[in-house]
Every structure is written in structure tokens, then in C-alpha cells.
Design a protein around this nucleic acid. Structure first.
Lengths: 237, 237
DNA sequence: CATCACACGTGACTC
DNA sequence: TGAGTCACGTGTGAT
């Protein structure tokens, strides 16, 4: 009975959904016609006569099935084209390549978001100093230096003075203060382009040493009351 | 001739790829057998005899075609699976719903990234000062103040001093310096909890005035050479 | 029972 | 022409 499936409901072909579909004329109607005429030609067997009444039901079931499947395809393809609209220059790409680009995008956005919000972590209770060399471009290299310590009015001035003394300049700085504690993250690079003058690791060590000294010099009393005074701290991904 | 497509190469069914496929047995072989036997029954037409030799080629063409199509499906589904792995709790979702979630994720990440990097826009050529009251929580209100001007060594010190004079404190600060220009964004709140002491709009006006004065006081010569010294500036979405 | 979602094979089209 | 992509209809299992 499998050839019965050739009696599909190709009678209606909506096909007026032109968003990305190349509007195939779907020549299966001819196929059905030729096959049915051939079978009609071979309908000399009387054993096929009593199946006429259930063919209608089967045919209508197949028709609504194919319509549902078409709707499903349209749903998926609609999502796919809005996704294609969101990805730069993905207008003429395979579905697979498009999805690959989407994966890349999501990974990239997540990584960027984490990178950006790295310096936004809430200041911790313990003093912390990290110095880390970042890649940078081929001309200059960058150093990411972070310090987490008690806040005080002249902390920033001390840091600036320290950077000037080390002949590095901050091209990027993030500071978040919360209840007496502060966390600063700087992206530093060498001041004048005296590349290769001093060893990179020794410069990092110097920065680390200076920052540690600044962090531990709490002039004011150690602990102040901690109050959640900033809504800008809970950036979660 | 469309029924010729029933002679497909269902003889080999690899089907050993089980990652997500429920391993359908693909009963089209029965369909082919029944159909072919039926056609064999009706092969009383001698005009079908000379087509035997080209049926092999057509069959093999169909086989490699279906194999290629299977590979294509596998590629798409592999991307879909990795995408499903990246979206939280999308393990049991339709393809369409999964793609919807992906769209949502991408939009959300882009929006968050833009929100975060709002203060991180590259310093512009013209001086700009904006002061804007942000919502904050019910206890304190925040003021977002940004200044874009020429960079100079004591700019930060001037700003800090100005904020101290206005009795506001920065709970959050972003600074980006690019080629002699700098853009600073501060989230300010009143220093000691003297709420309602001064009118909010007059405080904003004072901040704006002070920042404008600081921005326009270029002690050094106006234009320095602009060099692209930071990779952290071109955050594009 | 119907409905839904999936994989499959196939015809049409493009490069 | 041959490899690759797409939409389509269909069979099938799950809910």
C-alpha cells in the first residue's frame, strides 16, 4: 500500500510565503498525475474497489499532515531568517554556516561580556593585587593591574603618582567603590615608546610591589560599615 | 517517469551516527519492494526494457544524493546541538523554540554589552559634558556624569577635587584614554547621607558647570597627534 | 484517537 | 556535469 502515498494532497500549493524561499513550483503534481493515471490504467483488479471510501480519510490525513509539516518548516525558517538578519553579512550563507556564525557570535559576546565585567566584581574583604600582561597589538603590549583595598580619598592620587613614577600610563581604568572598599582595574602601557628598555617581567614586579604597598597602607581605621549602596554592582551573565 | 524515484538505493542504510537521531529504520525498502513487484506485474510493456542499463546509474546517483543530503542534515543538526548546549535549559526544546531562545540570547547579550560599554565609547574630538540623574534604589539616587576632553596629567586630580568640593563621591568610574583624548564616566552619589539638603537639579547644574570648566581648561596645547594606542577601544557590536 | 516533532529520500535549482 | 542547498511530502515514534 505504500504507493498510496503518491495520492498526496498536492492539489493545494499555497506557496505565497515568499520570504527567503526561492518559490519552487513543486512539480510533484505532475508526478502524482502520471502515477495515478498509470495506476488507473492498471485498475483492472477488483480487490482495490472497496478501499475507495477510506482513501478519502487517508488522503485528508496526509494533507493536514503535510500542511502541519509545512507550518513547522516555516516556523524554523522564520527564526533562521531573523537570526540571519542579526548576523553581519550572513545574507547568502548556508543554514549550517549561518548557525556556525551564530555560535561564534554567542561565544564572542559571552567572552566580551565577561571580559568587560571582569573589573566590575564587587570589592572583596581581603586586599588583592594582580598584575598580568595582556596580548595587545604588535606594537605595544598592555598590562592589566588590579588592586582591591580599603578606600581612601587620596588612593587615586597615590596610584597616579605611582604610575607616573613607573613611567606607565593608564589607557583604561575601571573603579568600583562599595562601602569603604574599592576595586580598581587599570590597563597600563609604557609611557613614551621606550620599548624593550626594561624587562617586562621586572616592570610587572615593580607594579605589583608598588600596588601592594599602596593597598596595605590603610591610613584610616580598618573596617567601616558595609552598606550596599550601588545598584551597578550586580551585573550578572 | 516520476515513479522511477521509488527505485531508490535503500539497500544500504548506514545509520550508525547515533547522536540525536532516534534511528528510524526507514521502511521505504518495503515501499520499494511492493511498488517494484507491482510494476513488475505490469511490465507487459516492452518499452520499459531498454531502460535497464541506465537505471543503475540513476539509482547510484540517487544513493549518493541521499547520502549527501544526510550529511547536510547532520551538519545542521550538529550546529543545532552545540547551540542547544550553549543555551541554558534548552535540552528538551523544539528546533524552532531553540532558535527563538538563541535569538533572545543574542539580543540580550548585545543589549547588555551596549549598556556596559555605554560609558566606554571612544573619546570624541569635541568636548562633551553630560549630567543625568539615574534611578538608583529607594534610599539614594545616583547621578551619571561624563566628561570628554583633552587628557592631561592632573585631570583626574581636578575631578576628584571638584567632587569633594561638591560633596559628592564616585561609587563607580570608567575612564578610557585614546590618543590624547579622554572620556570619563562617573556614577556619583551624595557624600554623607544629607538627603534632600540641596535641590537635585541645582546639584546637577553645579556638577555640569564644574565639569564644563574643567573640560575647557586645556592647559596644554590643543591638539596632539592621535595615535591608535589601545586595542580596548574598538568594541563593536 | 489526534498532534507534534523529527529524519528521511527526492525533485528542482544553482554554480 | 556534478556537487551542494533547499523545500517538500511522507513514515514513525512520542506525548
Amino acid at each position: 500500500m505504500a504507493y498510496k502515498s503518491l495520492y498526496s494532497a498536492c492539489g493545494m500549493m499555497p506557496q505565497e510565503d515568499g520570504f527567503t524561499t526561492p518559490a519552487l513550483p513543486s512539480l510533484c503534481k505532475e508526478a502524482v498525475n502520471s502515477a495515478s493515471s498509470f495506476l488507473g490504467h492498471a485498475s483492472l483488479h477488483p480487490c482495490f474497489a472497496e478501499e475507495e471510501e477510506e482513501e478519502d480519510r487517508a488522503a485528508s490525513a496526509l494533507r493536514i499532515h503535510s500542511q502541519a509539516e509545512k507550518r513547522r518548516r516555516e516556523r524554523i525558517n522564520a527564526r533562521l531568517s531573523t537570526l540571519r538578519r542579526m548576523i553581519p553579512e550572513a545574507n547568502k550563507m548556508d543554514k549550517a554556516s549561518l548557525l556556525g556564525k551564530v555560535i561564534e557570535q554567542v561565544k564572542d559576546l559571552k567572552r566580551k561580556a565577561v571580559d568587560i565585567s571582569k573589573g566590575f566584581t564587587i570589592p572583596s574583604e581581603t586586599n588583592e593585587v594582580t598584575v598580568e600582561s595582556k596580548g595587545g597589538c604588535e606594537i605595544t603590549t598592555y598590562i592589566e593591574a588590579s588592586i582591591c583595598c580599603d578606600d581612601r580619598p587620596d588612593l587615586l592620587a597615590d596610584l597616579i603618582q605611582a604610575f607616573q613614577g613607573l613611567r606607565v600610563t593608564a589607557v583604561r581604568a575601571d573603579m568600583i567603590s562599595l562601602g569603604g572598599r574599592v576595586r580598581n582595574v587599570f590597563i597600563l602601557c609604557k609611557k613614551d615608546s621606550q620599548q624593550g628598555g626594561v624587562c617586562m617581567t621586572s616592570l610587572e614586579d615593580s607594579i605589583k610591589e608598588v600596588l601592594a604597598r599602596i593597598a596595605s597602607s590603610d591610613v584610616v581605621s580598618g573596617k567601616r560599615q558595609r552598606l550596599m549602596q550601588s545598584q551597578y554592582s550586580n551585573i550578572s551573565f
